[in-house]
């Protein structure tokens, strides 16, 4: 009697374990997709803040035309970039996406840097609000990117390591390694050394 009970228990435990492994690929795939959606959201949010920012800065720093047009151009490029459906498994498209957003990011930080030179602008409540929103959004972007990197790491590990690799190969032959952001310093969680 006991033996039968034990073997049934073993069977249940084994099926739970294998059940987990069988579902890993689709589960992690969903996690990656959710993290990616979050990344896109935050980039979109940043792009939405820009027109207001430009309108405010323009009033105070008219002759900084170069930087202003650079931001506007980078924004329209980022918005017009059509994200292909297979972007997560398409290295080129993914790289392009990263480049386009990276350009917008650097143009924006340039804009914020020059605004330091205009005390009136810096005292403007509207500008301060926009600046804090932009900072918050940049922070959200880096959080979303890091979450995405971690989700992809988990997913790719599943497709690359044994024995999960075999299960994935058997059950999900269409599953492909996903692209991830080239980690910036912050993505890698490298602590900055502080000597004071």
């Amino acid at each position: 009697m006991r033996k039968i009970f034990n073997s049934i228990l073993l069977l249940i435990v084994a099926s739970i374990f294998s059940g987990c492994m069988v579902n890993n690929v689709p589960t992690y795939d969903e996690e990656v997709k959710a993290a990616w959606a979050q990344v896109q959201n935050q980039y979109k949010r940043r792009a939405d803040l820009i027109p207001n920012l430009i309108a405010t800065v323009k009033g105070y720093a008219k002759h900084e035309k170069d930087v202003l047009t650079e931001v506007t151009k980078a924004r329209s490029k980022a918005l017009s970039f059509k994200i292909p459906k297979d972007i997560l498994t398409n290295p080129e498209a993914f790289k392009k996406f990263q480049q386009v957003q990276g350009k917008l990011g650097s143009a924006l930080s340039k804009l914020l840097a020059i605004s330091e030179r205009y005390p009136d602008l810096k005292a403007n409540q509207n500008f301060l609000a926009l600046q804090s929103q932009l900072e918050g959004t940049e922070n959200r972007i880096s959080v979303a990117r890091r979450d995405y990197i971690n989700a992809v790491k988990k997913y790719n590990l599943e497709l690359r390591t044994i024995p999960n690799k075999w299960i994935a190969h058997l059950l999900y032959p269409e599953a492909k390694i996903k692209q991830t952001f080239t980690a910036t310093k912050e993505d890698m969680n490298v602590p900055k050394v502080n000597f004071n």
Binding site: L128, A129, Q131, S132, Q133, G136
Partner: peptide, 11 residues
């Protein structure tokens, strides 16, 4: 408690 309001509270 948006970023802008948080920033105002801090400053």
């Amino acid at each position: 408690l948006s970023d802008a309001i948080s920033s105002l509270i801090i400053h």
